[in-house]
Design a protein around this nucleic acid. Structure first.
Length: 110
DNA sequence: TGATTGACCAACT
DNA sequence: CAGTTGGCCAATC
């Protein structure tokens, strides 16, 4: 039983500081050729199967848009979680996204 | 084993 | 400017 690709993604997502967000592409680029942005989204989908709590709401697409909010079950669960962390959401999009952006390539010193 | 899928991204039409 | 296409690559059917 080998460890899946997901675990690497989870490891990064779990390191996202409170009140910060990152993008699928940023995580994919941090992992290099080990995966693409789609793989990160796939990992999030499987995160519900993971025995740990993955703050998937802190991962959005490149535009800061909450593309995966529908996977949280509720209507605006994802947006509400982000709002609770001090991030303003308007029309399913993070305002001042650049200010909240957390790049693993930089923060984890590549 | 082969075909399909997917919470993306960028380029093209 | 909106819709489509290709590429990405592992997990699922």
């Amino acid at each position: 039983m080998e460890k899946g690709f997901f675990e690497q993604v989870y490891d990064i997502v779990l390191q996202i500081p409170h009140g910060r967000v990152t993008s699928y592409g940023a995580i994919a680029e941090y992992l290099g050729s080990k995966g693409s942005a789609r793989m990160v989204g796939w990992a999030m989908n499987s995160s519900k199967n993971f025995p740990k709590n993955i703050p998937a709401h802190r991962v959005v697409n490149r535009n800061g848009l909450l593309t995966g909010k529908q996977h949280f079950g509720g209507n605006d669960v994802m947006a509400d979680l982000l709002t609770s962390e001090g991030i303003e959401i308007i029309d399913n999009k993070i305002t001042n996204f650049n200010s909240h952006f957390w790049d693993p390539r930089i923060e984890l010193s590549r």
